[in-house]
Design a protein around this nucleic acid. Structure first.
Length: 662
DNA sequence: CTAGGGTTAG
C-alpha cells in the first residue's frame, strides 16, 4: 500500500528538472511494472494498480500491459473475463501482449480460448514468435484438438520455427498424447541436434502407449541423459507395472533427485505395490533424504492402502515437526489415509482444520464416511459443500446410500446430480445405482436401468448386479449375469469365484464345479486373498496357505482355540465357500483358514488386551469369516475393524457396523 | 526490452 501511495503521488512531485532523467516516463513505467508484479498478493491491490495504469495512459505501453495481463492470469484470483477485458483496453496489442493473453487462457483452464486468441492474433496482423507456440501445443494437448494442432504445426513450419526445442517438445507431447506417435517421432527427427527434453517427451509418449521397446531404444541411444531422462523411464516403467525394471533403472542411475524418489514411490503405488512403495520411502529415510510433499503424499497413499496407521501417523507428525505447509493435496492425502485406516475421527480433525477445501478434500471425507457405512453423515456433509461437486463426489455419495441401503435417497441424488448439479452420470454412477437397487432386492428395476443406460454397461455394472444376486441368493439371475460377465471379463477370477459361491450356497454343487472347471480351462489364476495388519509400525501380511510367517505355529494354535471357543458359542462354520478363494495347490494342503482369520489371530496373540485390531483385506470378506469375526469380537471383548476391498466392517460386541448388509 | 519445453501428489 505504501508503494501504491508513492506512485500515486509521483506525478505531483517531480524531481528537480536538472535531475530528471531523460527517460523519466520510462522509469515511471518500470516502476509501475515493478509495482504490479509485486501486487499479485491481492486482487484489491492489483485493481488499484490497474486503475492507475489506465489513468496514466500506460496501458498503451505493451510492456506494462503485458505484465498486467500476466497478473490477471494468476491462478489465485485471476479470472478469464478480466483478462479478456484488459486485452480489450490495450490498443493494437503486440506480440508480447498476445503471448501473455494466450498463456493466461491456458493457465486459467480455457485452452480453446487460447487457440481462438491465436487466430485473432494472426488476423490482426501480429506475427507470432517462438514464445507463442509452446502454449498453443499445450492447449491442443489439453483439448485433444488434433485438427487445430495440425494447423498450428503447419504455422510453426511456415514461420521457420521448427528447430526450436521448446516448440518441438510441446509438439511431441501433443502428438504423443493423441496417440500419433509417428508424427511425434517425425517431429523429433526434424530437429538437427538432439535435444534432451524432446527425447524425454518422446520416451514419455512411448511409455504412455505401452511401447517399452521403443522407449528403451531411444533412451539407450541418447548421447546425454539428464536426471529427468531416468525419471521418465522410471515412471513410465512403473505405469506399465514393470516395477522390477523400474527398480533396476532407479538403482543404476548416476544421480537421484527429488523427483526420482517420488516417481519410484508413486510408481509402486500406481502398480498396486504398496509395500514396496513403503520400502522405498523407508530407504529414503535411511539415506537421510528429506521427502518432498510429493513423496509424503504418495507415502500416505501407500499407508492408506496398507492400513498402516502407525506409519501414517508418523508421517503426519513429521509434517508437523518440519512445519511443512499442509496444502490442499497433502491435507487430502491425510484425510484419505486416516479414513482408510479406520480413524474417521482423525480424518475429521484434519478435514476441519483445512481452510481451502477443494472438491478432492470433500470427496475424501465423504468417501471415508461412505466406506464406514455412515450414510447420514455423508449426506449431511455433501449438503454442506461450498464447492461444486464433481463426478467423484457422486460416486462417494451413491456408495454411501448403497452401503446403508438408502434406496430412495440414492435415487434422488442420482436424478439431481444431473439436474441440479450439472454432473453428467457416467458408467460408474450407473454401477453405483445398480448396486443400490440390487442390494435392496429391486432386481427388475436394476435390470431396467441397465437396459436404459446411454452407454454400454461395463463389467463393473454387471458385477454390481451379480453381487446383489449373491446377497439375495437369486440364482436364476446370477446364471444369466454370470454368463455375460464371464464373456465380458473372462480373465477376472473374482467373477468366477462369486458365481461359483452363489451356486454352492444354493447347493448346486455341479454348477459350482462347472464354473471352477471353466476357470481352470481358461487358465485364469485366482487372486490370493491377502490380509494385512499393522503391528507397531510394521505391516504383517497373511495369505491363506502361506506359512512363511515366523509365528505361524502359534497363530495356528491360537486359531484352533478360537474356533473351538466360538463354535461353542454358537458359530456354525460354513464351509461351502471357504476353500474356493485359494488356489488348487493350496487347497490340496487343506488349509482351513482365510487370510483375515490368520491376521485376527495374529492380532489377538500380539496386541495388548483391549487394543483394537485393524485388518485390511484385498478381497471382500466371506460370510463365514464375517459371522466368525462377530462372535470373536464378543468372546474376546475386542473391537475388530476389517476393511475389505469395498468397505469397512466394524465388529464390536458380536455385531457389525454393516448390519450384515454388504 | 519482457516470456516458452520434459519427469513427481489428492
Amino acid at each position: 500500500m505504501g508503494a501504491l501511495r508513492a506512485v500515486t503521488e509521483l506525478p505531483n512531485h517531480p524531481p528537480p528538472l536538472e535531475h530528471l532523467p531523460q527517460n523519466f516516463t520510462i522509469s515511471q513505467k518500470t516502476f509501475l511494472n515493478l509495482l504490479i508484479t509485486k501486487c499479485t498478493n491481492s486482487l484489491e491491490n492489483l485493481e488499484q494498480a490497474h486503475a492507475l495504469i489506465l489513468k496514466t495512459g500506460h496501458i498503451q505501453d505493451h510492456y506494462v500491459a503485458g505484465s498486467l495481463l500476466k497478473c490477471y492470469a494468476n491462478p489465485y484470483f485471476g479470472s478469464l473475463s478480466t483478462l479478456l477485458r484488459v486485452l480489450e483496453q490495450v490498443p493494437e496489442p503486440n506480440v508480447f501482449v498476445w503471448n501473455s493473453t494466450i498463456k493466461g487462457c491456458v493457465d486459467l483452464k480455457d485452452p480453446f480460448k487460447a487457440i481462438s486468441m491465436y487466430y485473432r492474433m494472426v488476423f490482426s496482423g501480429s506475427r507470432p514468435n517462438k514464445f507463442t507456440y509452446p502454449q498453443l501445443f499445450k492447449a491442443c494437448t489439453v483439448e485433444r484438438a488434433l485438427d487445430e494442432g495440425l494447423q498450428i504445426h503447419s504455422h510453426v513450419v511456415k514461420h521457420g520455427l521448427n528447430a526450436d526445442g521448446h516448440i518441438i517438445s510441446a509438439g511431441i507431447q501433443m502428438y504423443a498424447s493423441l496417440g500419433r506417435l509417428v508424427e511425434a517421432r517425425n517431429m523429433l527427427e526434424s530437429i538437427e541436434e538432439s535435444d534432451v527434453i524432446c527425447c524425454n517427451a518422446m520416451i514419455d509418449g512411448y511409455m504412455k502407449f505401452g511401447d517399452m521397446k521403443a522407449a528403451t531404444e531411444l533412451f539407450e541411444v541418447m548421447e546425454e541423459k539428464s536426471v529427468s531422462s531416468w525419471n521418465t523411464m522410471i515412471s513410465g516403467l512403473c505405469s506399465n507395472e514393470m516395477i522390477v525394471e523400474a527398480t533396476h533403472y532407479f538403482n543404476k542411475m548416476p544421480e537421484k533427485d527429488e523427483v526420482s524418489w517420488s516417481a519410484m514411490i508413486d510408481g509402486c503405488n500406481k502398480a498396486g505395490c504398496f509395500k514396496e512403495a513403503m520400502e522405498f520411502f523407508n530407504q529414503m529415510q535411511r539415506e537421510g533424504r528429506r521427502p518432498s510433499k510429493f513423496v509424503l503424499s504418495s507415502a500416505l497413499a501407500s499407508c492408506a492402502n496398507l492400513g498402516a496407521l502407525d506409519q501414517g501417523k508418523w508421517i503426519h507428525s513429521y509434517i508437523k515437526r518440519n512445519r511443512i505447509v499442509l496444502d490442499a493435496v497433502l491435507a487430502t492425502s491425510l484425510v484419505d489415509m486416516y479414513a482408510k485406516c479406520g480413524r474417521l475421527d482423525l480424518a475429521w480433525d484434519v478435514f476441519e482444520k483445512t481452510k481451502e477445501r477443494e472438491v478432492f478434500c470433500w470427496n475424501a471425507m465423504i468417501g471415508g464416511l461412505a466406506m464406514h457405512g455412515r450414510a447420514e453423515d455423508a449426506i449431511e456433509l455433501f449438503l454442506k459443500m461450498n464447492v461444486k461437486p464433481n463426478d467423484i463426489t457422486f460416486v462417494a455419495l451413491l456408495n454411501a446410500c448403497a452401503h446403508a441401503g438408502f434406496v430412495h435417497q440414492g435415487l434422488k441424488y442420482f436424478v439431481t446430480m444431473k439436474r441440479t448439479y450439472l454432473v453428467e452420470p457416467g458408467v460408474e454412477h450407473y454401477g453405483c445405482v445398480v448396486n443400490l437397487l440390487g442390494k435392496a432386492g429391486y432386481f427388475n428395476e436394476a435390470e431396467n436401468l441397465i437396459n436404459s443406460m446411454p452407454m454400454k454397461p461395463n463389467s463393473a455394472v454387471w458385477g454390481a448386479l451379480l453381487g446383489a444376486c449373491r446377497m439375495h441368493g437369486n440364482v436364476e439371475l446370477a446364471e444369466k449375469v454370470g454368463e455375460i460377465l464371464l464373456d465380458l471379463e473372462g480373465e477376472n477370477s473374482g467373477r468366477y469365484t462369486l458365481l461359483s459361491n452363489i451356486y454352492a450356497k444354493a447347493r448346486k454343487w455341479d454348477r459350482a464345479e462347472e464354473v471352477r472347471a471353466l476357470m481352470k480351462e481358461r487358465g485364469v489364476k485366482t487372486v490370493a486373498g491377502r490380509s494385512m495388519i499393522d503391528l507397531k509400525g510394521v505391516v504383517h501380511e497373511f495369505k491363506a496357505g502361506d506359512s512363511s510367517h515366523p509365528q505361524m505355529k502359534d497363530i495356528h494354535l491360537k486359531l484352533e482355540e478360537m474356533m473351538q471357543e466360538i463354535e461353542a458359542k454358537g458359530h456354525q462354520p460354513d464351509t461351502s465357500q471357504v476353500l474356493f478363494d485359494i488356489s488348487e495347490e493350496e487347497r490340496e494342503t487343506s488349509l482351513r483358514y482365510h487370510s483375515e482369520k490368520l491376521a485376527i489371530a495374529f492380532g489377538i496373540l500380539n496386541m495388548e488386551p483391549g487394543a483394537t485390531i485393524r485388518v485390511v483385506k484385498n478381497l471382500r470378506v466371506c460370510e463365514d469369516c464375517h459371522s466368525a469375526t462377530k462372535i470373536i469380537s464378543r468372546v474376546y471383548a475386542r473391537e475388530i475393524i476389517v476393511r475389505d476391498r469395498v468397505r469397512y466392517h466394524h465388529f464390536r460386541n458380536g455385531q457389525c457396523s454393516c448390519k450384515d448388509f454388504w
